[in-house]
Structure formats: C-alpha cells, structure tokens
Nucleic acid binder design. Structure first.
Lengths: 350, 350
DNA sequence: CTGAAAGCGCTAACAC
DNA sequence: GTGTTAGCGCTTTCAG
C-alpha cells in the first residue's frame, strides 16, 4: 500500500448515522432499508430512501466488509506464461462476459497477473488475506502452484478451460469446477462435416500441446478419423503465423490433401493465406474449417471461414454464475462443471 | 454484492490482538511493527515478528481501510468502445506495466469496463463510494462522461494517451495529467528517415481520426513533409486488414509512390502483405516504416519492419508512478504529464 | 417492527 | 518507547 502519510482528500461523506438522523429513525432501521428494506414498514422505508437520496449516501464498503466478511470482489488470475492470451480476442471476450456478469452481481473484478514463481507469494498473501470472495483462474500449466494455493486457502474458485490435472476428492469426484466448451465434440463435428463433403485426405493443424483445448480438439479430430495417422497433424501455436507455417509444412509433406481442420481461426487465417499464395483454391481444392468463430477473423478471410462457434462471452458469464452459486449456497457444495455446446457455422471455406 | 445470507467460510484468522498477546506487547506496538516498526525497540520488534510468523498473521484490509481511508486499490477504466484495445498487444503490454508497478506499490488493480452510458451510473457509484484511491483511464472519446464524473468526485486520475479535450484550470493550465509517447516527434523522425533515404513520394496510412495518437502521427508526417497533399494519406483503423486495404487504395491512386509511413505495426504488416502480393519489392521499390515496435509483429514481417519504438510497458508503469506521486503528496498537487521519447528501430523495410 | 448496544480489526492520538 | 483509549461506519443480536 502507498505510504499513508497524507490524506489530501479527507472527504466527509455522509454516514448511515446521518441518514438515520435525517429520516428520524435508528441506524439499525436505516441499515435494514439500505440492504433491501425487508421487515421495515413502508412509511419508514420511504423516509429513509429519501434521506439517502438527499444526502447522496453511499455505503462504506470497508465498514460493511469488516462485519459481513464479504467484500464483493472476485479475483481473475492469469498466469504470465499465459498472458499472451490477453492479446487474443478470445480472452478479451471472455473477460467482457465476466465483467458483465460481475456487474450484474454488483461485484468487482480484481485482476491478478502472475509473472512467475516470485509472484506466487504475493498472490498467496492476497488470497490468504481474504480480499476477494472468490477466484476465476485461467488455463493453468502442468506444474502450476496456483491450484495448491487455492486449495490450501479454500478460496472458492472456478477455472476457465479444463485444467490439466483434475484434482479429485476421496471418492474420485473432480473437485475443480470449470467451464469449457465442448472442444472434442466441436472438433469431431467439424471433421465429420469435411468427411460428409467427400474429403478423404483431411489434415489437422493443432494448437500447442500444453493446452487442454488443443489436446481435446486433436482427440475430436481422431474420433472422426480413427484411421488417420499422426503425420497428418501439424503443430501450430494458435497464431496466424504459426498457422501459415503449419500449412506450408503440410502442403510440402502431403500435396494430395483435400481438407484441413484448423484448431483456431487465427491459424486458419494464416493457412488460408498460404493456400491463396500457392494458388490452391479454397474450398475446391482444399476445404478449410476453423474453430472459435471470432467474427472479426472468420468473416474477414478470403473466402469467409467455415468454423466451429463457441460462446466465449457466455462462458465467461457462466464462470461467474457458478462462482456466485457457490458463494450463495449455504451448504458450501460445488455446482458441477459446465461444458458448453459448440455449433458449426458454415461459410464459404468448406 | 452477492446476497450475504450465508457465510460458508467463517474462518478465524488471527488478529492483531492475538499477535500482541503472543508477543506480550500491546496491540499498538504490534501494529507499529506490522507497519514498518519505526520507533519500536529491537527486541520487541523481533518478538512481534516471530508472533506474526508463528500465527500466520495477515492484516485485515477492511479494518485498516476503515481507519486510514486508503484502500490500496486503483481502478483501470476502459471504455467499451475502446475495449477492442484489449485485443491489441499494445494494450496488454500497458496493462502488464501497470500491473507490475502496482504490485511494487502493494496496490491492487480493479478493472472497470464501461459499456455505454448505462454503465456510467455504476462507475459513478463505484468511484463515489471511494473504493479506490485513484484511477487510470484510457483513451476517452469526444463526448465521454467519464472526465466529468472523475472531476466531480475528485478522484485522483491519470490518463493513458492524450485526452481529446484537455481540461484546463482557471489559468489555462491543463488539469489532466496523462502519459503518452511522443507520437508527433516519432512520426516526424520516421518520415525524415524516409526522406534521408532519398524517397520523394511518401504516403501515409493513418489510424482512426478519433484517436489522438493517430492525429498526432499525421501531424508528425506533415511536419516532415509540409508540401505533401492530403491525397497521400489513406485512412486505416489500426488493424492488419485495414492496413492492407489502405495500401491497396494508395497503390491504385499513386502508382509512383516510393515510400509509406504507416501509423502502426499491425497495419504495416497488412500493407507489406499487399505489396508482396503485387510484386512490389520492399524496400527497393517502396520503403515502409511502421510505428509501435511490437516485436511479435515487426520482427515477423517479410522483410522485418523498420519502425518507431515506444516503451509501452514503461508508459504503463509511469502512469502508476504519477498516480502514486500524487496520492503520496501532501499538497495534493499534480505531477506534470509525461511524454515519453520514441526511437527509430531500423530493420530491413526502410 | 424498531431501537439500543455490542462489536468487526485496526490505527492514531494521547498519556505514561 | 510503549500502552491506553477512542473511534472508523456498518451489521446484527437482543430487547422491547
């Protein structure tokens, strides 16, 4: 905290006391009204409300937190290694969903960026300090310390994306609620679509293997193509350039391929560029299906991209809702994880 | 705030009282030690420290805030219209700088996304509620209500990027401290570099005219080329596609151009692609200079991009430092705005 | 249904 | 130097 030596703005905001006085009631009654007004007679409620308006009363959060032990804030924790997701429209959408839903619950979003193990101390202190009611955590890595910290301090948490290692309780039931889209099912559908188009040599450009979304999409590809060898899978990194590179490799190794399922739209856009540069016609020669349905990308490609849509913003909102459900449950039991459905969006590329 | 009907986790964290008891001192002394330990004799300091460790004591933030009236949190406010900047690596870098510097000051980052005028109420309540010690606000629009709100509640604020309309005090001195890079100077340097290379028909691909950074870069371009007509300026939108479009227009209208200064790297990357597709050699036929120096973009282009570097992360840190300076100043006077220098980074494209 | 009173955990005068 | 004592503004029993 900044050096608290000065206080340039010792503002005298009205207190509940003042409201009560003005309304001619006790502080207790004023408090009841401010918090919904249950069990207070109408006329009093109105007098208090008026006083609130006239005085421009706004409750003091710190005082309230001190007694209720709830602070109306949720931390969004992002691992620095994953921080690049920040520059992914995908993530900005999810944050937007989170922000919206949090607003609806009158809760604040505290952003915690973790940049390597040095920062875990800080985050630990922060969580241990009970500054937030809950946590939303994103795409953890294999050896991430975060889950352990979170478990240790029993901070209610919802994960975004299926965590690599699902913790399980004594009965073997997963103890880590998360929200993810049906990556595997969506991928399967995409590839089946390609098959139904009569394509026979269907390649896959995969995302980084340390992300479960990429792994799950590979699984979906293989579900639909049980006989396809791993040589038809090229590795990408979810960036446009990575997609372009992978496409070039694939073209070199398998000149006969007639379709490619790409694990996200950014890479698909790179792949399309390479195909265009090589004079390969899409979809006539090679059909292409992406994943994500980021309109800004999928509608701007040439030709427009057929892709698997996932409701990213909705997933963000869902994360918040799961968390709130838990926070408001008396039993302290967790809601189930949610796998949201995907949907194939047909455009021109396949 | 979520419905406070339940409290599944009524944890009994140790209080200062407990620490004091264990160390055999008064709460006051314990407090002094926890807050730096100035004016407490060594042996006592150590006993208290031990007690803190043994008990795993962590100060209760709410209680502290209640009395100090400081809450160790800073809001970062982003206008939804500008929310796309989220998906700009530029912004993610700035946020990172902010986050780092805030951590260094032990302050938290509260993210406030504004999505249209409906949300101003919420933000107003939040700021008025005194939940944060200060505000960092980004790229406001012409008719933005935010500055008014901020002024009304006298929340210490630093802006990121030169605000469109600089508020001035009675003496006409600007009252809005901001951090921005020297957009105009950087642009000027870029174009002068092109001139020094012997280029004579130098075009400009500009950013959206409602952003001061774009406007300032246009000014810099014109500084260096006082005789260039406005027809050599094409409008872009800071995206790759926009840059490609603008480049195509320019090529059609001015087949004789031999250089182009592009207002950011993303657009430059799109422009380079178009030039390549048309068989225009870079830099032989047309030299290209970008702006930003986002390595991920500028180093990946073909050829690598000569561009104007700005220290984005540093600017984020600076914003925090200005804010903290203000928060810790007894006089409540504002530090000056800061314009950070830019630097031409030569690669292969010019 | 309303009010009185007791704190929540901490800091900051003010004494000693 | 260190301890004592008031609160900070609010919620919440508990009486009435």
């Amino acid at each position: 905290m900044p050096d608290p030596t000065s206080d340039p703005q010792r503002d005298a905001r009205p207190t509940l006391e003042a409201v009560a006085a003005r309304a001619g009631v006790s502080r207790a009654t004023a408090s009841r009204v401010v918090n919904g007004g249950a069990g207070v007679r109408r006329p009093l409620v109105e007098r208090v409300r008026e006083a609130v308006d006239e005085l421009g009363y706004i409750p003091n959060h710190a005082a309230r937190t001190l007694v209720t032990r709830r602070n109306g804030a949720v931390a969004v924790i992002i691992d620095e290694p994953e921080f690049r997701i920040f520059s992914d429209p995908f993530f900005s959408r999810q944050i937007r969903g989170i922000s919206r839903e949090l607003n609806a619950h009158d809760a604040q979003l505290v952003l915690l960026l973790v940049e390597g193990s040095g920062d875990f101390d800080r985050v630990t202190r922060y969580l241990a300090g009970g500054h937030v009611d809950g946590v939303l955590a994103f795409s953890l890595h294999t050896d991430d310390e975060l889950p352990a910290i979170i478990r240790r301090f029993r901070v209610p948490t919802v994960y975004g994306g299926r965590p690599e290692h699902l913790a399980t309780d004594a009965e073997g039931a997963p103890q880590v609620p998360y929200v993810d889209c049906d990556n595997r099912g969506g991928a399967r559908e995409a590839v089946r679509h390609l098959v139904s188009l009569g394509r026979r040599r269907i390649a896959h450009i995969a995302g980084p293997r340390d992300q479960t979304s990429a792994l799950d999409r590979i699984d979906g590809y293989q579900d639909a193509l049980p006989d396809a060898g791993p040589e038809l899978i090229a590795d990408g990194d979810f960036t446009t350039e990575g997609g372009a590179r992978a496409m070039a490799e694939l073209l070199a190794a398998h000149p006969d391929l007639d379709a490619v399922f790409v694990a996200n739209d950014m890479m698909a856009s790179g792949a399309l560029r390479v195909l265009r540069e090589r004079g390969v016609r899409v979809p006539e020669d090679v059909a292409v299906v992406g994943f994500d349905d980021m309109e800004s990308v999928a509608e701007a490609t040439e030709p427009p991209l057929t892709t698997v849509r996932q409701d990213v913003e909705g997933m963000g909102r869902l994360m918040v809702r799961l968390l709130m459900e838990r926070l408001n449950s008396d039993t302290g039991t967790w809601p189930e994880s949610v796998i949201t459905p995907t949907e194939l969006v047909r455009r021109a590329s396949a």
